[in-house]
């Protein structure tokens, strides 16, 4: 992969929600999906072979401890290329940073089987496409006063609200606002979500990234975005009165 630093953002994001992951490798690319230990969030990723500068693979399941993977990826420097290489004999995944020389980390494989967890195919009445930075900042604002946030769609507006014991926060995005790329409102809806989870889900998002949010009424939220050619999908169960 061209940039190890970019891929680090992906590993940073999934490792806040998951402890371990089983990468399903095939000729088409790499995919994986898993629920967090408390079964509140689901993380799914898909890396098409095209996202790699070079990709040679046949079918394998590669179980990895994400804490170790994150530690290694944190050592990536800008301009490092990333090479992921399976050593079947030693049962290790080699993570190689290539730049002025080569640095190789060998991670022990975990005996995990590919998860049967799939993102369910649900129709959502509302879709918000928003600049990642604007959404992330609004979550940080909401975090000042509460540990959960209410996401609402009404009258062609997307609202992010937090109610503390004494203090409140509200962000409002209209269709014409610069932060909004697209707003499809089918029906008024509102759902409440834990802020720690939501902030973990957007951890790797930086300015220029666009997030797609699917929202229903007291329904799990679905979120999609791409980082470094990696397609990420998240589901988050709501808080319910």
């Amino acid at each position: 992969m061209e940039s190890a630093k970019d891929f680090k953002k992906v590993v940073d994001t999934i490792s806040t929600l998951l402890d371990e992951i089983c990468f399903e490798v095939s000729e088409e690319g790499i995919k994986a999906s898993a629920m967090d230990p408390s079964h509140v969030a689901l993380v799914s990723l898909e890396i098409p072979s095209l996202a790699f500068e070079e990709f040679t693979a046949d079918e394998h399941e590669i179980g990895i401890d994400l804490e170790a993977f994150k530690k290694v990826m944190n050592r990536a420097k800008s301009k490092d290329k990333l090479i992921l290489e399976l050593d079947e004999e030693k049962n290790k995944l080699n993570i190689i940073f290539e730049n002025t020389g080569k640095r190789k980390f060998s991670l022990a494989l975990l005996d995990l089987s590919a998860s049967s967890v799939k993102v369910p195919d649900i129709e959502y009445p509302n879709v918000v496409v928003i600049k990642g930075e604007a959404f992330k900042e609004a979550l940080k604002d909401a975090d000042l006063f509460s540990d959960y946030v209410i996401l609402k769609v009404e009258n062609d507006k997307f609202l992010i609200q937090a109610k503390g014991d004494l203090n409140d926060f509200s962000a409002e995005f209209e269709k014409d606002d610069a932060a909004i790329v697209n707003l499809e409102v089918g029906e008024e809806a509102k759902s409440a979500f834990n802020l720690d989870y939501l902030m973990d889900m957007v951890k790797g998002v930086s300015s220029g990234d666009i997030i797609k949010i699917y929202l229903g009424n007291d329904m799990p939220l679905k979120m999609e975005y791409s980082l470094a050619g990696v397609n990420l999908t998240f589901l988050l169960a709501p808080r319910i009165e």
């Binding site: 408390s38 169960a237 009165e241």
Partner: peptide, 14 residues
């Protein structure tokens, strides 16, 4: 106050 529910409360999952 609201209560956190699980994804399995909505879908057959996992």
């Amino acid at each position: 106050k609201s209560k956190q529910v699980k994804l399995s409360d909505f879908f057959k999952i996992g």
